[in-house]
């Protein structure tokens, strides 16, 4: 499965970078979302993908019976998902506010500090 995921992650990155290079600030934020998702998948995939073996320990045992998926990247990605959401919420409100002041969706018009 990993080669397929590698291609998918590459495409996600490409889409994200393309969006972030746009002048529209909304596209920048959408690009940022894609980028954080792509990065999460990158971490998740590089640890290797396992089917049907979640890192849970059955009741009554001290350790899982067989090999399980690596829990560490999962924990890292979980943190990252939540942080990315925090960043997104902040960014979305920020562009909303910036638009109220600059009256434009164009990043080039936000270049001057005294607008």
């Amino acid at each position: 499965m990993e080669p397929v995921m590698a291609v998918a992650i590459g495409l996600l990155y490409a889409a994200a970078i393309f969006l972030m290079l746009r002048r529209s600030i909304v596209k920048l934020v959408i690009g940022l979302m894609l980028l954080s998702n792509a990065a999460n998948l990158l971490i998740f995939t590089s640890a290797g993908m396992t089917r049907g073996a979640p890192p849970l320990i059955p009741e009554g045992l001290a350790a899982p019976l067989g090999p399980v998926a690596d829990p560490l990247p999962q924990a890292v990605v979980l943190t990252a998902i939540v942080i990315a959401f925090g960043v997104l919420a902040f960014a979305v409100v920020l562009i909303r506010r910036a638009y109220e002041i600059v009256k434009a969706d164009d990043l080039d018009k936000m270049k001057e500090t005294d607008t």
Binding site: A6, Y13, R22, K27, L42
Partner: peptide, 29 residues
Amino acid sequence: FATLSTPLERVRDFLVAGCVGVLITLLVL
């Protein structure tokens, strides 16, 4: 959304983004 960039800029950005994509795929592999 308005069209703010010229076609040439879009091609340039497309190429750059494509490069990143290929590179990341190779990196993961």
